[in-house]
């Protein structure tokens, strides 16, 4: 069961919990159906003298197996919606977030920090290619754009995925909660270098992050 990379963002844990809730519920129905198939096939396997029952249905049973799954799905839908609105509703967008712009192109991520004036596209911007640094425990707001075709910004450890669409600015926000280095993968086919459109996120303590910004600017 240890396939998931350890969650490193604020809502990663909630997504995982939802996943495992669905896993156990669907797992139950999976086992029910497979066991039912196996049991019936073994138990009612044709033998001399057996005659099948002449049954066309059973209204009670049919109502149960319509209503019970419907109720379970309703609960799952409500639970999913709760998490979904938390991670995607524009009203939940954090106010004090660190703003980063990611401009995707075939086959690289162009990353831009607004710099001291807090505005993008000004001379004090700090830019990198493929290297996203974030301070730990501070919400990050990533604005995604694309130069050419559709790309998708996917950081598995954060459980974050958002397409970057040319002509649109899409936004996604999350709070990194764990120091370390993580991979940015492109999750939307973007051409021959799609498989190699790799970036890295470095989550640092706030002071290291500030120092990195200064150093990067100085090296430009």
């Amino acid at each position: 069961m240890g396939f998931f990379p350890e969650s490193a963002s604020s809502f990663g844990g909630e997504i995982d919990r939802l996943f495992w809730a669905i896993f156990w519920i669907t797992g139950f129905f999976f086992l029910l159906v497979q066991a039912g198939l196996l049991f019936f096939v073994l138990k009612y396997r044709s033998r001399a003298g057996r005659k099948a029952s002449y049954v066309h249905g059973h209204t009670g049973l049919e109502v149960i197996w319509t209503v019970v799954p419907a109720l379970i799905l309703l609960v799952l839908t409500i639970a999913s919606q709760k998490v979904w609105s938390e991670i995607r509703s524009p009203r939940r967008m954090p106010k004090d977030a660190l703003h980063v712009e990611v401009l995707a192109e075939q086959f690289a991520w162009n990353i831009r920090y607004p710099g001291p004036d807090q505005r993008m596209e000004t001379p004090d911007d700090i830019t990198t290619i493929n290297e996203l640094h974030l301070p730990v425990n501070r919400p990050a707001l990533v604005s995604l754009k694309s130069k050419d075709v559709i790309h998708s910004f996917f950081v598995a450890d954060f459980r974050v995925k958002q397409d970057a669409v040319p002509g649109l600015t899409t936004q996604v926000w999350f709070t990194p909660t764990k120091l370390g280095q993580y991979e940015i993968r492109c999750a939307e086919l973007c051409g021959l270098g799609h498989y190699r459109m790799r970036g890295q996120v470095t989550v640092q303590p706030r002071r290291d992050f500030e120092a990195w910004l200064v150093e990067t600017k100085a090296n430009e």
């Binding site: 997504i15 939802l18 996943f19 669905i22 669907t26 999913s80």
Partner: peptide, 11 residues
């Protein structure tokens, strides 16, 4: 059903 759940789908 996993994929239909919007947050799980994000992953």
């Amino acid at each position: 059903i996993f994929l239909g759940s919007t947050p799980v789908n994000m992953y």
